[in-house]
Design a protein around this nucleic acid. Sequence first.
DNA 1: CCCTGATTCGC
DNA 2: GCGAATCAGG
Length: 194
Amino acid sequence: MSWTDDRVEMLKTMWGEGKSASQIAKELGGVTRNAVIGKVHRLGLSNRAAPAKTAKEKPAVKEAAKPKAAPKPAAEPAEEPAAAASPASKAAEKPVSLPARKPIITAGQPLPPQPSNSEISAEALATVAEVEKKAKKLVLMELTERTCKWPIGDPATDDFWFCGLGVQTGKPYCEAHNAVAFQPMSARRDRRAR
DNA sequence: CCCTGATTCGC
DNA sequence: GCGAATCAGG
């Protein structure tokens, strides 16, 4: 494909809207993000920042207190395979002041059943304990399709993060967490089937 | 690892 | 002019 006036216009618009090169490339189709970036440069609209002129200044940070306090849960774009579809537990709006771990995490997403165990193999639990030591401690924004989304710690404190290790293809968690997350009901059972 | 934009340079 | 390859950063 080539850069028809039409496509160039779309490019300008989208770039102006702050879309990323790869996003634009995807939407335009027929081009790669490199092509888009290259074009952007040739068009001379590389930096979206204002013409602050020749000086690099560190403008004082203007922080306005936001009355809003509801952080959007990590809402992934749109097309999500129906991979992890834990029916989000109704977001209970409990006041935050729990001494121990709080069950609710964030609304929405495939957040796991609490580590509250019952009949989970001791082995799996042990593994989880191990894994949590190696966890990458990712924060919400850093989670992706392939990072384990198992929460660790107390959401009400800073002592909270997500496992972040590589997930088992398709699953929302890493192998260890998957083991405790999806219990068949009966811990073990002879599987002659298959 | 995933992603971002920036640059280079052969075509 | 174009964009793959590469670079630099998060």
